[in-house]
Structures are given as C-alpha cells and as structure tokens.
Design a protein around this nucleic acid. Structure first.
Lengths: 124, 124, 124, 124
DNA sequence: GTGGTCTAGACCACG
DNA sequence: GTGGTCTAGACCACT
C-alpha cells in the first residue's frame, strides 16, 4: 500500500487517501483480504492526524472496498470482477460527467476535448 | 446572462455562478462592455444573498473577465482572442488533467476513457 | 483648463478633477479671476455626469481655490503667494506622510527611498 | 504579529491589516511558516468582525504572502529574497509613483520634495 | 440608482 | 479546534 499526500492541494487529505487506496484495490495492486496497516502506523508515516486516516478508512468501508474486524484490523473486501466495473463507473462517472459538461459549456468541441484527454492521458 | 443554481451541489454557489458566467463570456454569449445586471437584481432573481453574488463578481473581476465602475455597474472586459484561448486552457487544463490522472490510476485504458468522454459529451 | 479622466483608476472621478484643477491653480497656469467653463460643458467634454463635475467644483470652493458668482460662473480665487505655499504643504503633507510611513514600515532605508523618489520624479 | 487599527481612517480596515502584516512579512519580522493567530482571535483582539479579518487574510493569500491549511491555520509563505524585492517594488512602486506625479504637478521642485521626504521619514 | 465596506451570527467541512 | 460558506441587514461613497 502506497499513499502520497499533497498537503497544499485543495482536495482534503482523507479524500486523497481514499482515492489512492481505492484505485489500488480496483487496480488489483491490493488483493482481497489484504490486511491494511493500522491507522496509527499510517498516520505516523504520513505525518497526519489519526482522525484523518480513520475518516479515509470509514469512507473506504462505506464504499465497500474494505471491511473491519474489530481487534484484528482492516482488510480488502472481495470484489467480483463485475462489481469492479460497476464501481469504476460510479467513481469515474459523476466526476467525469461534470467536468465534460463544464468543458462543453466553455465552447470546446468534442474533437478538441478528445485531443486534450488523449494528450493529458499520455503525459501523466 | 443566464445562471442556474444547484443548491444541493457540493460546489459553492459563488463558484457555480463564476463558472457559468465565465463560460458565457468565453463563449461569446456576452459581448465586451456588456453591462451585467446589478448584484441586487441577480440576488433577488436567484433567491440568494447579495453577498454571494458579489463574491462571484469579485472572482470574475480578479480573473479579468469583468471590470467594475463604482456607481455605474459591472461590465464584461475586452478580451483579445489570444487571451481567450489562454484562459480556456487554464480553466480547463488543471481540472481535466487531475480528472484524467485519477481515471488512469483507476486502471482505465485510454480507449475506455475516450469512449466515456464521447458518451458523456453527447449526452449532455 | 485641462483635465484628463482615468475611468479605470481607483481614485474617484471628482477627486481626479479636484487634483488636476487645484494643481493648475497652484502652478499658476490658471490666473486669479479666471472664469472656469460651465459644469455642463465640462461634463459633456469629459463624458461624465454633471453631478460629478459639480461635486469637484464644490470641493474646490470649500478648499478656497475658487469662488462662485451665482448666475455668472465660477472663478479662480485670489491667493497670496504665502497662502499658496501653505496650501501646497497641506495638500501634499498628509498623503506624502502616510506614504512614507508605509514605505518605512516595509523596511526601506532613507537612502533607498530618496533614490526611488528621485527616479520617479525624473521619469514623470 | 502586531496590528493597529485606525478606525477613523479612510482606508478600509481589511486593507490596513493587509498593509501591516505584509510589511512585517517583507521585513522579516514574521518568518516563513510562522503560524498566524486564528482569525477569531485576531478579530476579538482588534474588536472587529471575523469577516473583516478573513478578508484581510484572503488578500494576503492572494498576494502570495500566506498560505492556508484548512483545519490547521494560516502560515507565512516561503519567499525567496528575490521575490521579496519584487513584491516590495510592486507594493511601493505604484503608490509612490502616483504620489510623486501629483506632487510634481503641484509645482514642487525635486529639491523641495526630497527635503519633505527626508523630514517626514525622520519624524515617523 | 450603482458598488464597497462592515456587522453579527449561523452552519458545514476538515483535522 | 481550525477555516469556508452563506445569510440578512446596515451604512457609506460614487454617479
């Protein structure tokens, strides 16, 4: 498990963690039943508050990415591949849709937009 | 000038206004030196506080989209076409880049992403 | 009499007029008993409201630079040379003092400041 | 951090705060990453509204003097010495230039002006 | 009439 | 605890 915090960013820290961990789960980088490190450890390593890590874990659990066994730790939930695609679409969908609507309102043509997307995808 | 507020959204109202008005300026819907309606009027029409409208106007002025003449009103700033493209790229660039990086991390291939973009663009 | 309005500036229009006309009087460009043009004419030439011109004239009269003869017009007041210096110091004093206090607080040494003043004086 | 409000002055309170705090940062009185007191505290001490303080903080952030970490506080931004001089010149330049142009128009000679500047500098 | 400033007080998101 | 947003309502300066 690997997380990098951008403390100056406008997205809250807990959400940054959520995005990165969920991405790694959907990716397959973190297999099912993988045991996440204890929140205190994560907090210490990232030099952030325990509360913030806990918040991220809560969001992950609510989204069905992990499950908690009291006294033992948090584990990656089993996801069948179909569920996986559904989750991807949900996670991507709203954000992407909003972004595209905005870009369209700005007067960007579909061609311009696709070109930008391609460019940014290859750059990153 | 036309603005629609989504009061349930997570983006602040003043930012929604900013996005919609700036989009209309970049679009060319609002010509240079066009006199925007007085903030009180807008506030009444949108059923929000005068201050919230003012906040949006301030951001627009700071971004160079409008200029204020105290006692007379607020007007669309003259933008040479080159500036226009720069502004578009700035406004779109950061947001879009972030979105795409996230999507990529989620494991989406370029093809999948482009298909989604196309779909959402045509839907909206 | 010659006045130039900077409509985008942060100093109000009536004050711009006040400053420029009073400067011309203190300069000697406008001799005593010189008859200022009627406010309507000034307003039309400068493309501003009559009210704004009237406001400037009022300030000038209150400061003792001009006097009004109802039905005839406004005229440059007679100023003995001593009064002139006093007025100069009053007009300059407060503004300059404030500016210098601020510059000093910013950490500018007297030498730096004098150099800047000299530079700006010769430039303008 | 030390701020004094002149409630009778014509410059808005938030700007007075901006000027004094930015001066202290440019001075070096406030080191980088120094944590400014919470806006509520400042408001209470200065006996002004929280909003007015916030407004000043916003201007400081926009000018690049401080940065905000939501939930943690506001901190003095790191400024390389070169940037520092640039900022000084910008902050001083426009105001001083305007002032001097006005003084010159009033008929003040360079010698008179320099003498006044020296006098006011030493007085304050 | 216009916008500019300031107030007091509320609620939410973040850590 | 922190700052971010929004509200309603007041007063002033400028045109």
């Amino acid at each position: 498990m690997k997380v990098i915090i951008a403390s100056g960013a406008d997205t809250p820290i807990y959400q940054q963690i959520f995005e990165q961990v969920s991405a790694q789960i959907l990716n397959g980088d973190l297999p099912r039943d993988f045991c996440l490190p204890p929140i205190r450890t994560v907090a210490k390593e990232l030099r952030i508050s325990v509360i913030t890590v806990k918040r991220a874990w809560e969001e992950l659990e609510r989204a069905g990415f992990i499950y908690t066994m009291v006294g033992k730790g948090c584990f990656v939930a089993p996801l069948d591949p179909q569920m996986l695609d559904v989750k991807k679409e949900v996670l991507v969908g709203d954000r992407l849709k909003k972004e595209i609507q905005y870009d369209k309102k700005l007067g960007l043509s579909l061609e311009e937009l696709l070109a930008l997307v391609k460019k940014y995808y290859e750059e990153s």
